[in-house]
Write a protein that binds this DNA or RNA. Structure first.
Length: 290
DNA sequence: CAAGTGCCTTTATC
DNA sequence: AGATAAAGGCACT
């Protein structure tokens, strides 16, 4: 099965899966394999097409954000030379629509870790607590259900390499298992309200919440600011802030909540309703070019 | 090869 | 309010 990609639907599968928004895809013999829900999606990009197996076209379109009008989004965020450069370089990078539960746990785990370590942790969690699914002779695992992580012992979670994140994951799994989060409803809730609700979960601060909102809850205005984005802002957008503020965030190890929100609202007011796309292009640029 | 640094931060405490 | 320290452990240099 395949989806045609014409000039009005730019897409770059490799960049989309490698840019650090998702952690459980593998490229084997020219095909990307990733578990989406209960199923292993098998996907590759060829001239003019996205080809896929073991999935349905509407699910592929939804997961890879192919319903978003990327040309319109890119022209809307292209406010200056720097972002235009990043957009030209990685054009076709799309924001995925990931599973909110998996995204929530993934980004709780992601705090203060590098991407390879995050992949390692999530792979451990899935292998130990998920369901085995095979395709083309390769073994994959679904992401563990909330009820499974809720009954896991903390010792088991520590063995997956979660470290101090263990109790956050465990308690958040409890909350989700108890029905405290209706992700379906959160996708229909406004950005600020949905964010406030996510912040009630342990291990979820403003940055983690923004990642969940952007990558799984369909809030393209979310503008996560991690160390790379802070660098990008210091390097290319410091004239949008006072000298004093820039000096402060240059020196400090960690951003406090109000400084974080200042940077986030800059992103939203400067780049507009698709600030999250701008963030992902700038983030990827900063990580690959630097 | 050892040791140091950094990592898509949050929370507790003062 | 705002600053500071502590919290795994792995990958990279």
């Amino acid at each position: 099965m395949r989806i045609r990609l014409d000039r009005s639907t730019p897409f770059n599968l490799d960049v989309t899966l490698c840019c650090g928004q998702t952690f459980r895809w593998d490229k084997l013999a020219g095909w990307w394999y990733g578990v989406v829900g209960e199923r292993v999606f098998k996907v590759r990009q060829t001239e003019g097409f996205v080809e896929f197996e073991n999935a349905e076209a509407h699910l592929v379109r939804n997961y890879f954000g192919l319903n978003d009008n990327l040309n319109r989004i890119l022209s809307e965020i292209s406010k200056d030379g720097h972002i235009k450069n990043a957009v030209d370089m990685f054009s076709g990078l799309r924001i995925l629509r990931q599973d909110p539960w998996e995204c929530l746990i993934s980004y709780i785990c992601a705090t203060y870790k590098n991407i390879s370590a995050i992949k390692h942790m999530l792979s451990n969690l899935s292998r130990r607590f998920g369901e085995k699914v095979c395709l083309d002779g390769n073994t994959f695992y679904t992401f563990p259900k909330p009820e499974r992580l809720a009954v896991a012992s903390e010792a088991e979670l520590v063995e997956c390499g979660l470290g101090y994140r263990t109790k956050y994951v465990h308690e958040t799994a409890d909350m989700v298992n108890d029905g405290l989060y209706d992700f379906e409803r959160l996708t229909r809730t406004g950005y600020a309200d949905a964010k406030a609700q996510l912040l009630n979960a342990p291990g979820v601060g403003p940055k983690v919440a923004d990642c969940i909102l952007l990558f799984s809850l369909g809030k393209p205005e979310a503008f996560p600011v991690d160390v790379w984005m802070r660098r990008a802002i210091l390097r290319h957008y410091n004239d949008h802030f006072t000298r004093k503020f820039i000096a402060k965030i240059r020196e400090k190890e960690a951003l406090n909540r109000s400084d974080y929100e200042k940077l986030g609202s800059f992103g939203r007011s400067y780049f507009g309703q698709f600030a999250g796309y701008a963030q992902e292009y700038l983030y990827h640029y900063e990580r690959t070019i630097r």
